[in-house]
Amino acid sequence: MPLKGFGEHNLHNWKSQITSLYGGPIEFLFVVESTEDPAYHAVSQLITEFKGDVDARVIVAGLSTTCSQKIHNQLVGVENMHKDSKYVLFLDDDVRFHPGSIGVLTTEMEKNPEIFIQTGYPLDLPSGTLGSYCIYEYHMPCSMGFATGGKTFFLWGGCMMMHADDFRHDNYGLVSGLRDGGYSDDMTLAAIAGAHKRLITSPPVAVFPHPIASDLTFSRYWNYLRKQTFVLESYISTVNWLMNRALFLTHFYLSWGFVAPYFMAMVHVAAALQIYIKGYSYGETTCTSGGLLLAIWLAICTFTELLSMWNLTRIEVQLCNILSPEAPKLSLDYYNWSMIFVAMLVDNFLYPISAFWSHFSQTINWSGIRYNL
């Protein structure tokens, strides 16, 4: 687990990760940049608390010079794993695991040795701020992996299980691709999987609660969004560059294509109100009536989309409650659907702006570290 800083949910998340019901041999490696990181002392205390019950230790990776700090921490963790380890599981520090998750992921890897990466998806638990709802809305497309029968091209860096030997032998240029200039772990690995036609899967129970910090300000959300678009500027091959450019253009078109009808609908509604107030006849309002009809269809489509998101979230909440029966029950009460609608507009409006900013600036500050391309 690559760590950076210490937030309000980290301790709970770490406990859920190390208190696994997996019956086989397992070790937990927490990797920090330095002993000055607040996470170092917090996780060291946690390991002391569970001493004798779990095989866990903290590793100090040092400062990265060739790739992102997260990737550097991951690779140092791999270098220090047990020589007999068969699989390696990368987890973010904001992932809340279920007791049987490691066993499920391992079983799937054993059943199908052709699996290159096994991933999961987050169930965001908004804290009430607009930024937290924007992150929830941004992550929702990841759940499309549940509709693909286990096979997916969506890869979430918060949970990735892989074969340890792929790292030991640098298969497919895995280690070198990450180490030499890698910025995003999941985008880089997805590109390698695509280039070598390797299989990415997700079991149907690999959905994990992802509580969002209550102090998440809008500026922190903007920095998060900048990070998501900044990854499109990094690549390991020409094919990867072309994929990123295609994703950049597609996301740009779809995002503002989603927002534009709402601005148009506002114009039509405002015009209709103006016409009504001034008392124009029906014959003079034909165009406006047509615009209002489109606005009504837009409202119906919006309701359908929100209903679909509500239903998917409901299913994921129920699934998480079943998978973690002893944990506090999750509820749909976490979600304010009016805020989610606003977040949909804000997120899709800002994404192209963030993407352009990342493209022309070629730099970002993430977790106190300045990255330049």
Rank of each mutant, 00 (worst) to 15 (best):
L3F: 11
K4G: 08
G5H: 00
G5R: 04
F6Q: 12
N10Q: 08
L11I: 10
I18R: 04
T19N: 15
L21A: 13
L21S: 15
P25F: 00
I26Y: 00
V31E: 00
V32T: 08
E36Q: 13
A39F: 00
A39Q: 00
L46R: 04
L46W: 01
E49C: 06
E49I: 00
V54Q: 01
D55Y: 11
V58I: 09
S68T: 03
Q69W: 08
Q69M: 13
I71L: 01
V78E: 03
D92W: 04
V95I: 15
G103K: 02
K111W: 11
N112V: 06
I117K: 04
G120E: 05
P122H: 04
L123T: 07
L123P: 03
L130A: 13
C134Y: 03
G145E: 06
F146E: 04
L155F: 04
M162R: 01
M162S: 05
F167T: 06
R168P: 00
D170M: 07
N171I: 03
N171P: 00
Y172G: 00
V175M: 07
D180Y: 03
S184Y: 02
D185V: 10
M187S: 07
A190L: 12
A190Q: 14
A191H: 10
I192M: 09
A193C: 10
S202N: 10
P203W: 01
P204T: 10
V205W: 15
A206G: 07
F208H: 12
P211V: 08
I212S: 10
D215L: 02
Y224V: 03
L225D: 09
K227W: 06
Q228F: 10
L232Y: 10
L232M: 14
V239W: 08
V239T: 14
F248G: 06
L249A: 12
L249C: 08
L249I: 08
L249Y: 14
T250R: 04
H251C: 09
V259G: 04
A260L: 14
A265N: 09
A265Y: 11
H268Y: 14
L273H: 09
K278Y: 05
K278W: 06
G279H: 07
S281E: 13
C287L: 14
C287I: 13
G290C: 11
G291Q: 01
A299C: 11
I300V: 14
L307F: 08
T313Y: 07
I315M: 14
V317N: 02
V317D: 00
L319M: 12
I322A: 10
D333S: 15
Y334L: 09
Y335L: 04
I340C: 07
L350H: 08
P352T: 01
I353M: 13
I353K: 03
S354H: 11
A355W: 12
W357N: 12
F360I: 08
G368T: 06
R370F: 12
R370M: 08
Y371I: 01
N372W: 02
N372T: 14
